[in-house]
Each structure stands twice: as C-alpha cells, then as structure tokens.
Amino acid sequence: MASQGTKRSYEQMETDGERQNATEIRASVGKMIDGIGRFYIQMCTELKLSDYEGRLIQNSLTIERMVLSAFDERRNKYLEEHPSAGKDPKKTGGPIYKRVDRKWMRELVLYDKEEIRRIWRQANNGDDATAGLTHMMIWHSNLNDTTYQRTRALVRTGMDPRMCSLMQGSTLPRRSGAAGAAVKGVGTMVMELIRMIKRGINDRNFWRGENGRKTRSAYERMCNILKGKFQTAAQRAMMDQVRESRNPGNAEIEDLIFLARSALILRGSVAHKSCLPACVYGPAVASGYDFEKEGYSLVGIDPFKLLQNSQVYSLIRPNENPAHKSQLVWMACNSAAFEDLRVLSFIRGTKVSPRGKLSTRGVQIASNENMDAMESSTLELRSRYWAIRTRSGGNTNQQRASAGQISVQPAFSVQRNLPFDKPTIMAAFTGNTEGRTSDMRAEIIRMMEGAKPEEMSFQGRGVFELSDERAANPIVPSFDMSNEGSYFFGDNAEEYDN
C-alpha cells in the first residue's frame, strides 16, 4: 500500500510504541512475548500442572481467558453494579484439565481477579502490559475465525453469508486497541457500523446529549479505520460520505453494504499476525530463551520457528480426527482463516481442507461434555516452508469459486491468482447506482469489472525454506488448481455463540 510509510507498523501498534527502528520493534515485541511466557509459567505453578498438562491447549485457553477477564475493567465495573446470582464479580476462573488415573478430569478453578492481575503485572515488570493482553485477544479471535462461520451475524446486519472472507476479527472485544483495529476485516468494521446506525434509528437519543457526542466521535473513528483499509480513492470518498452524514440511517447502511461487497474484489488491507497460545510461549521462556534479547516478529519467520520446536497437546472428542484438529489450530496460529487453501497447503506441506470436510468441533470443551471418553493427542503445528504475512489485500483475480465463501483475504505475501467468483459478486451490483453516491458507485463498479483474471497478485513473492531466515531465496510455489480455494466452501461450520 502506498501510504505504508505514514502508518505505524503493526509491531508498533502491538507494543504501543512511538516510531521505533526494526531492532527496537523486535525487542519490544519480544518483551511482550516474554511477559506472556513468564505469566503462563507462574500460572502453571499456581495450578500445580504437570509439564504435559501445561502444554494442553484447553488449559492455555482457560488461563488466557482468566487474565483477560481480570483486566476487563468495563465488564468488571458492570458486574459490580449489576450483581447477578451466583456470579462473584471479583473472581474469575474456568475449567482446568488434569490427568488422573490414566483419565482426563475437569476441575473448575476460581481465583481472585486481583490475584491474577498481581501475577500478570509481576510477570511483566510491574506494568499492565496491555500489548500482551491484546495479543491474547487476537489469538482467540484468530481461533474463532478458523472455527466458526459468522453466517447468522452477517444475515442479521443485512449482509450476504458468502462475504465471510471479510469477517476477520469479528469476535475481537471493543477494547483491543490499535492492534485489534489493524486485524479487523472490512466486513467486521461494516458490521460494527451498521449495528451502531441501527441503534440510532431505533433509539432517538442515541446521537443526542453528552453521551451522543461520545457516540458520534466513536462512529467517526470507526469510519476512519474502515476508510484506511480501502485502497481505492472511490471507496475512500464513499467512506467520507458515510462519516460526514448528519443523521446516519438506511442510506448509510446501503452504502456500507455496497462497500463491503466491493471489497470482495477491490480488497481492503487487513493486517495478519501470528499470535500463538500462551502454552507455546511459556515452555520456550522456561527453556531459557530470551525473546527480548533475541527479538521477535509476528509477521516473519519467528512464529514458524517457534511452532517448529513446540509440543502442544489437545483434548480430542471420541469421533474427532486429531489431524483435522491440528489443521484448525495451525490455521489459527498463522492467522489464515480466509487465505486461499492452495497457498496454505503449499506452505504447510500437507493438504489443507475446507472447514466442512474437517471432523472436528471447536477447541474448547463445553462444561456439560462427558470427560470419560476424552483422549488427548499432539497437535501437528509444523510447516514445510515459511512466508511473510501481508497486510495488503493483493490485486484481484477471477477463479472458480464456491457456493460458500466467494473470495479470499490473503494472509501471506505469496504470488498467486486470487480466487473470487466474479459473476456471483457482480450480480449483486445491478441497477442500484442512484442517489448521492452514484458517481462513486459507478466508478467502483467500473474498477471491479476491469479486474483481470490473468493478473498475478504479489508478483514474484515466494515462500522460503525454514533454514532461509533472511528470506534470501524465494520459492514461487505451484498450486494444484483442481483443489478448492475457499475454506468455508459450501460450508456447515458451527455458528459462533458468545
């Protein structure tokens, strides 16, 4: 993207840094990872977990959730003011799984939030270390993106479920800051804005008074975040219109849905970061690795190297396929839920299948599930090659597409044709070009129609051997075009429920 120079890199967003050079960025990201790792080690000690239990991804998720809940100030305040039966607002906890007599047992633990905050700050040299908290939120978000298709949420806001490739980060909490905003897809931002506008339509006082002023500035800020994701002048001009509207209503909703559809071809720039579970960072720190000293990046080879040398386990339900569970977590670790499966298959070195073909449910185990038949197995999170994460949407291309997802959002900077089903997408653009945004709409449609099938995206960008740390010898991959490109292809993934 041309304006790259004016933006802070995501590592800076990730670490609240002012302008830093590459070495400083690597050190501050490393410091953040160190903090998460030290916190995780301490929690495993508190909970008396064995090494194996500490490497269980379900335990990692519970521990991450506990610290996120302990620092969720708004919710904590709300819980104190609106006490609900049987919930102690000062405590947080969740299921911890232990191996007892050759069987997995679930144990519900409860801790004072104050105590968890103390352990977290102690692991982070006394700081609140917001960057580390956001990092864990993005890992949870990436896992949700890989596990669930947001059909219901899309339909509720009037969008087409086939636009799911635009929904990265749709389950990120509001408090995820600049680093969170960077990884949100165009569809996620559109959905947040539509929800806001709908509230304004239904509630006369939404934009009024002292609160209304705050609401208005939040609305304009979200519009600017979305505008910054678009790469064409016409899309940005249309966002200006939406932002400046005196009284946002149905016309703005129409414009936003139009823009979301246009992003299936004229893709937005959305950041991709490899955020790993805390149970990967903990053992690495415990083994003596100093992330701050060595430096770390979320968008280069580092996460690949770390996963190459990590042992992570997962509980497996009786009829689940461990290899499929591994694929789910591998995609989440690489922030690749909406990437082209052919690119992923090449990088991973084994075939990556669409969601609907995987015999696996989510990673988390519900409290009512029976533990008797639970097994555990090693997650295979290694890769054959590594590639640089991208934040450009890439230019655009036609490809055989599917009944489910009709476009992709690249996660890796790797040369390819970008699949999208042009006739299906263009069919949504018939007729409606009147109104105050008509010239911009016409211009956007013209650009979409001009998108050429034979153009290559990320020209000359390749993948790298894991021994090639400096990215000196790019390998331009070859793809098996007979395979499906979309992950949520004609899909039956479970729906995400809060």
Results as ranks from 00 to 15, higher is better:
M1A: 08
S3Q: 08
G5N: 11
K7P: 00
R8W: 10
G17V: 02
I25D: 00
G30Y: 03
G30W: 08
M32L: 00
Q42H: 12
M43K: 14
M43V: 08
G54M: 09
N59I: 01
L61Y: 04
L61H: 09
E64S: 09
L68H: 14
L68P: 10
R74E: 09
R74W: 10
Y78R: 08
E81H: 09
H82V: 08
G94H: 08
G94C: 08
K103M: 11
L110H: 08
I138S: 05
H140R: 01
H140G: 10
S141H: 09
L143V: 08
R152Q: 13
S165V: 03
T171H: 05
P173C: 07
R174C: 02
G177Y: 03
G180A: 10
K184H: 12
K184W: 10
V186M: 02
G187R: 07
V190R: 03
M191E: 03
D203F: 01
T215W: 02
R221H: 08
K229R: 03
N247L: 01
G249K: 07
I253M: 14
L256V: 13
H272N: 01
L276W: 01
C279D: 05
P283L: 14
Y289D: 08
F291A: 11
K293S: 14
E294Q: 15
G295V: 06
G300Q: 08
P303W: 01
Q308R: 00
N309H: 09
Q311A: 09
Y313F: 11
L315N: 05
E320D: 12
C333R: 00
N334W: 03
E339Q: 09
D340T: 13
L344G: 09
P354E: 01
R361L: 03
R361C: 02
G362K: 06
D372S: 08
E380L: 01
L381S: 06
A387K: 09
T390C: 12
R391M: 04
R391H: 04
N395S: 14
N397K: 15
A401F: 00
S402F: 01
Q405H: 01
S407M: 13
P419F: 01
P419I: 10
N432Q: 14
N432L: 15
T437V: 01
T437P: 05
K452H: 08
K452P: 10
R461D: 01
V463S: 06
D468C: 15
S478Y: 10
E484H: 00
S486M: 09
S486C: 06
Y487K: 08
A493M: 10
A493F: 05
